[in-house]
């Protein structure tokens, strides 16, 4: 089920996430990075992805934290020496740079977390179907096969247990060998059936001429407005960054952060860019709440499931 930002045209979402990644990689400025991080986390929470966020957090902190730790250990550039470790100087600049890189990585992880929820496969495919129709078709077919193969693999596992082929029993060597036997049964069976798939494609005219793409997405006025807003609010900080505003110079020598008029404009525009989806999401939640209060005072909120690999397809 989709609502809010998730229900919008894929172009909006793709532009938004591309922009976020771009900013995360370009703007090495603590204020901007923290704003972006908070903005994306807010969006995640509004999208009801708090659980996913918590589940992934240890891994993300480990990955990002190690960067913060490793940089001062291996980079010794900078003027402000804090202390010496194993005869190597640890500089303030290196520590700061490490911390900023940590923020960058954390932001990127969060962006992808939100991306995974918002940009479903068909949206992703929609964007690439025109540019690379065959690749898109190939990918979609592979996506279609995965749940089918999972189900087949499950059946094969059950049946082959009768002939002693069982991944859960025996030595590691035997388990690995058995696992591959199961895969081989799946391979032979699936290739055989795939020929019928090929026939069915051909029977419906595959390869006769260049394919067009059918899409269920329509660009409505809200989408256009959001697109326009995103482009404008995204271009302002980008242009200002090219002109040299909003940079935080660490190496070779840390300079104090400046926050002038240029930065203020840049930051405001940047905030707008980051928060547009969260705003849309929030507005929709608020609308639902108020309409439900009015229409069905006793209604209880319902949980919506999403598609995931862990649930068996039976």
């Amino acid at each position: 089920m989709s609502s809010g930002f998730r229900a919008m045209h894929p172009a909006v979402a793709l532009l938004y996430y591309a922009g976020l990644l771009l900013f995360a990689a370009l703007l090495m400025h603590p204020l901007f990075l923290i704003t972006e991080l908070v903005g994306v986390m807010l969006l995640l929470l509004l999208q009801g992805q708090g659980k996913q966020l918590l589940r992934g957090l240890p891994f993300y902190l480990l990955m990002a934290g190690s960067v913060a730790l490793l940089n001062p250990l291996f980079s010794h550039r900078g003027a402000h020496i804090l202390f010496y470790l194993w005869d190597q100087p640890v500089t303030l600049e290196a520590v700061l740079y490490g911390l900023i890189m940590m923020l960058v990585l954390l932001t990127i992880f969060m962006v992808f977390l939100s991306y995974n929820y918002t940009v479903t496969t068909d949206k992703f495919m929609y964007a690439f179907a025109a540019a690379a129709p065959k690749t898109a078709l190939l990918t979609l077919m592979a996506i279609r096969f995965i749940p089918l193969f999972q189900r087949r693999l499950h059946e094969i596992t059950m049946i082959q247990r009768f002939r002693g082929i069982d991944v859960s029993k025996g030595s590691l060597r035997k388990r690995m060998r058995d696992g591959m036997t199961l895969m081989k049964v799946l391979l032979t069976w699936s290739l055989e059936e795939a020929l019928q798939t090929g026939d069915s494609m051909k029977a419906r005219g595959y390869g006769i001429r260049r394919r067009t793409t059918y899409s269920t997405f329509v660009l409505d006025r809200l989408d256009t407005t959001a697109l326009l807003l995103l482009v404008i609010s995204g271009l302002i900080p980008l242009i200002l960054w090219m002109l040299g505003y909003g940079t935080f110079e660490i190496y070779p020598r840390m300079r104090p952060l400046v926050f002038g008029g240029g930065e203020a404009l840049m930051y405001t525009s940047f905030c707008l860019f980051v928060l547009i989806p969260a705003g849309l999401e929030g507005k929709e939640i608020w609308l639902w709440r108020s309409s439900r209060r009015k229409a069905y005072p006793s209604a209880t909120p319902e949980l919506n499931g999403t598609r995931s690999m862990s649930s068996p397809s039976q």
């Binding site: 065959k134 078709l137 190939l138 077919m141 592979a142 996506i143 279609r144 096969f145 995965i146 193969f149 999972q150 693999l153 596992t157 991944v167 859960s168 590691l172 388990r175 690995m176 696992g179 199961l182 895969m183 799946l186 391979l187 699936s190 290739l191 795939a194 020929l195 798939t197 090929g198 026939d199 494609m201 051909k202 595959y206 390869g207």
Partner: peptide
């Protein structure tokens, strides 16, 4: 120019490679 069978073959092998992560999830 790819025959439909060839395209399906590529898709099947990709999907098999992706699915092959499953039986070994325990290892």
């Amino acid at each position: 120019r790819l025959e439909s069978r060839e395209l399906v073959l590529l898709a099947v092998l990709s999907a098999i490679a992706a699915v092959s992560r499953i039986p070994f999830a325990a290892l």
